[in-house]
Design a protein around this nucleic acid. Structure first.
Lengths: 197, 197, 197, 197
DNA sequence: TATGAATGAGCATTCATTCAT
DNA sequence: GATGAATGAATGCTCATTCAT
């Protein structure tokens, strides 16, 4: 089947990635074997290796995808007409996270936790994660600048530092959801609103 | 003689755990082989297996230790004489975290991230993590009740929900420290204070 | 049309063989993969398999070519007008070998060494090698009979046995050239002349 | 079975090497799989890897052994009381080679041919082969100096060049034996004697 | 006839664990 | 108890060959 279209190639890559995502959300990166991914994808070993150089490349692609998935565009919030508060933006983030947990290819938040752990070991995954985090922090900064304009954030606040704190609330939500299981976007957000009020 | 033996046993277990901690903080749980732990501990394979049933038991002990290490006693803060604000308690937590990164047996925050990932895969690690998190949430609740008494937290706030939000700030601090590297307890806390102000 | 096709077939086969020769002289038979040969030839996998049944057929064709390349026609020497000595014939052989090392498709003497090794494993390659060696021995016998006539070889010598000895000097020259690197046709021949003198 | 003696270690290494030798003399270096060696040795995979880092290390050890096996000590011949001719020394070499073909761990001359081929590919094997060849050439030079003293070699001959030529007769003997099969030490030597006579 | 993506058996190697000493 | 050599199933990956287009 030579002369395959780019769409075909992309679809095949996605087929591998989706299979790997399901495996990783079940078993984590390191208990997921290539044999699992191969079986789950329905492809042959050789075919999978035709689309990815090896397990590391798949791990990196998945880490990128999962961490990227957690990123919400806060930009549009910052550019919208409605007044924006930090709590509003956090609500958007938390609802987005809850949606990722229901992904058809497994709970993406579980995969993201794997990716965080991998970022602490693998320089390349760390770089991917860093880029993603900085991007989202940029979104938060835009929102916070807007919030200062709207009066919902103190004008003397340093948007960069506040962005660090605000983005920092997401991992704690993800982990408590997965590990304790008693946290919802609503309860978490309510807790935050009570503090800032 | 039995007491000497018990002390001996405890010392030997610690020897293995400390070695494993150093390995895991360098390489993560799954790239750490028993051979690494055995070599790092200076013990023989048979000896290590005399103190731990296998790798899983070591992983669980380490996960317990690392997640437990992140827990600070906020109880004494709640019971002290000084008025307490949520930000004060967060400062205590963040400073404690910064100290763990300098542990003689490797950066414990890196190990904790590994433990979070493992908690998403292994029911027993998850249970350990859950107990630890609930314990710390209990400490936060005590602090927050005190804060309500002191007037630094709104009297209508639900301490449980606020505790979820407050404990949720810690993982985000750990991850940004390890992955982005530009976050300090001071900058993170300043960001938080700006929001609640 | 059939003739054009035949020429085309021959040209294509040569294209594959030349590519394979370059690969084998670099990497040996068994480290040379079909993918290497396919890439080096600039043809497609399917095309290569249209001209050769498989890797074994290519190996045999190359072995034939490389061992055949070492064969010089000593016949014309035997039939010439000039008096011939064994050393003269050896000089022709050694000079020919030195030329093969400069082949545009890689050092053919390296390929020949691979072919010798393969001849010890593969019955078909061995048969090819045997035919080639016997052919050259025939050439040597003709030269040696002529040398007896010329008086440069003892009349009681058995030309077959002497041919065994004389042809036997070639592999040692090739190997010392490739492995030790300090042997030239001139030095090797001088050594031989000193013994027979 | 801890605290094993050095003899035990040496015996185990030999057990692997002997197994590998049998495999390689049958199938060549590259068709010999680790599974073959492991099965032939009667050891487990892990045990074999406890004595050798990998297949390459085994190949190199075998190449060393096989090429080394071809080396005869011509030194004692050079130092003996009897007058020595080049043909006498060649006789010793050829008889030695015939003996190696009957080794209990397979025909060592077949393994040596594999080693020559490998020496053309692998820098480390080449270095091993070079050292071995230079050693034997040294033996030949001693013999030839002695032969000059005895009057059986022309006093003007350069012993180094003659040694190149004389050692060069061995590979041709090995290859003709293995590939054509009609050459014996006796016939080959007779051919040589006829030329030098 | 040409293409090259796909196949899948096979390969070298690792590693958690055991157990004879 | 302590030792560490031995085990062998499992892993990530390769590559000669095929065949739908």
């Amino acid at each position: 089947m030579p002369k395959v279209t780019d769409e075909h190639r992309a679809a095949r890559r996605h087929q591998v990635l989706a299979a790997a995502l399901r495996c990783v959300s079940r078993e984590g990166f390191h208990k997921t074997t290539m044999a699992h991914v191969i079986a789950e994808s329905g492809m042959s070993a050789g075919a999978v290796y035709g689309y990815f150089k090896g397990k590391n490349e798949i791990i990196r692609a998945i880490a990128d995808f999962a961490i990227g998935g957690l990123a919400v565009s806060l930009q549009e919030l910052a550019e919208g007409d409605e007044p924006v508060t930090p709590a509003d933006a956090l609500a958007v983030v938390l609802n987005h996270v809850e949606g990722l947990a229901e992904s058809p290819d497994g709970d993406l938040t579980r995969v993201a936790v794997q990716a965080w752990a991998e970022a602490c070991r693998d320089e390349q995954v760390r770089e991917i994660a860093r880029q993603r985090l900085l991007k989202v922090r940029g979104g938060w900064e835009a929102v916070l600048v807007r919030a200062q304009r709207d009066g919902s954030l103190h004008p003397d606040a340093d948007p960069t530092q506040v962005a660090q704190a605000m983005i920092g609330m997401m991992p704690g939500f993800v982990l408590q959801r997965l590990i304790v299981g008693d946290v919802t976007a609503a309860s978490y957000l309510a807790g935050f609103r009570s503090v800032v009020a």
